[in-house]
Computed example of a mutant assay.
Amino acid sequence: MLTFAAAVFFLIITPGPGVLSTAGVGAAFGVRAGARYVIGLFIGTNLVSLAVVSGLTAVLLADDRLRTALFFASIAYLTFLALRIGLAGSRIAFIEKQKPPGIPGGILLQAVNPKAYAVNTALFTGFGFWPQNLGVEIVLKFLILNAIWIPIHFAWLWLGVTLQRMNLPMRTQRMINIAMALSMLAVVVLAAFAQT
């Protein structure tokens, strides 16, 4: 169980679309809007988990045409987000939008986030710790996953809000945007290699 918890921590805390966009929404729109976005991400990640556990993901991805279409939609959306972050200029806002993405935006991001599917597949199909009852193990995995997921995402939200309040020099802000965009593009590249 401790190995599973450690895997959850390291897989979730690493930069990916969910945590990077959480920091971006916090930087651009503040804590309240960021919290609504995190609620959407939370719902979305649990829907992805349920899709993985129920086998729905496997059924959908068994169709090569659908898998390819979903793959390219995910890659296009994540590349778009990375470009928006990287080209935001000298203001740490990660995401330039007129209004915050809210709960629906968080759900949508997780629905197309290849890291969410990869992490959930790895966590729910591996790291067994309750072989005598798979149902109990799955419930415990959901509880552990969410107990770690929630504070990590709120920490990234806090980071985004804090970075915006620090009034860093423009060059530093630009470098942060580029580093975040490159991190998100790394997820895109890893997803592309995993697909081949």
Score class of each variant (00 low, 15 high):
Ala118Glu: 07
Met175Lys: 12
Pro151Cys: 12
Leu70Cys: 07
Ile152Met: 05
Ile148His: 13
Phe124Lys: 00
Ser74His: 06
Ile95Thr: 12
Val48Asp: 00
Ala69Pro: 05
Ser74Asn: 08
His153Met: 11
Ala51Trp: 00
Tyr77Val: 00
Arg165Ile: 13
Ala82His: 05
Ala69Leu: 14
Phe127Asp: 09
Leu70Lys: 05
Leu83Gln: 13
Leu41Val: 00
Leu109Asp: 04
Phe124Ala: 05
Arg165Met: 13
Phe124Cys: 06
Leu145Arg: 08
Phe94Asn: 03
Ala76Pro: 09
Gln164Asn: 11
Phe94Thr: 08
Phe42Thr: 05
Leu81Asp: 09
Leu143Gln: 06
Val53Trp: 09
Lys141Cys: 05
Asn120Gly: 06
Gly102Gln: 14
Ala82Gln: 01
Arg174Phe: 14
Phe94Glu: 05
Leu123Asp: 11
Thr125Lys: 13
Leu47His: 01
Val52Tyr: 03
Ile150Val: 14
Ile95Ala: 11
Gly128Ser: 13
Gly160Ile: 08
Ile103Val: 15
Phe154Ser: 08
Leu56Ala: 11
Gln173Ser: 15
Ile85Glu: 05
Leu108Trp: 07
Ala155His: 11
Leu61Asp: 10
Asn113Gly: 12
Tyr117Cys: 08
Phe154Asp: 12
Lys141Tyr: 07
Trp149Asn: 13
Leu109Gly: 02
Trp130Met: 06
Leu70Asp: 03
Pro131Trp: 03
Ala69His: 02
Pro114Ala: 09
Leu66Asn: 15
Ala76Asp: 02
Leu123His: 03
Arg84Gln: 11
Gly128Val: 12
Val53Glu: 03
Pro169Cys: 13
Gln173His: 13
Ile148Cys: 08
Arg91Asp: 15
Arg65Leu: 07
Leu50Ala: 12
Gly40Thr: 00
Ser49Asp: 10
Leu56Asp: 03
Gly44Lys: 00
Val136Gln: 04
Lys97Met: 11
Gly106Phe: 08
Thr172Arg: 03
Leu109Val: 13
Ser74Lys: 07
Arg91Pro: 07
Phe72Asp: 10
Leu50Cys: 09
Thr162Ala: 10
His153Leu: 14
Gln98Ile: 06
Ala73His: 01
Ile85Tyr: 04
Ile152Val: 09
Gly160His: 04
Asn133Trp: 10
Gly126Thr: 06
Glu137Tyr: 07
Val53Cys: 04
Ile95Cys: 10
Asn113Gln: 13
Thr121Trp: 10
Ala118Asp: 08
Trp156Arg: 08
Trp156Phe: 01
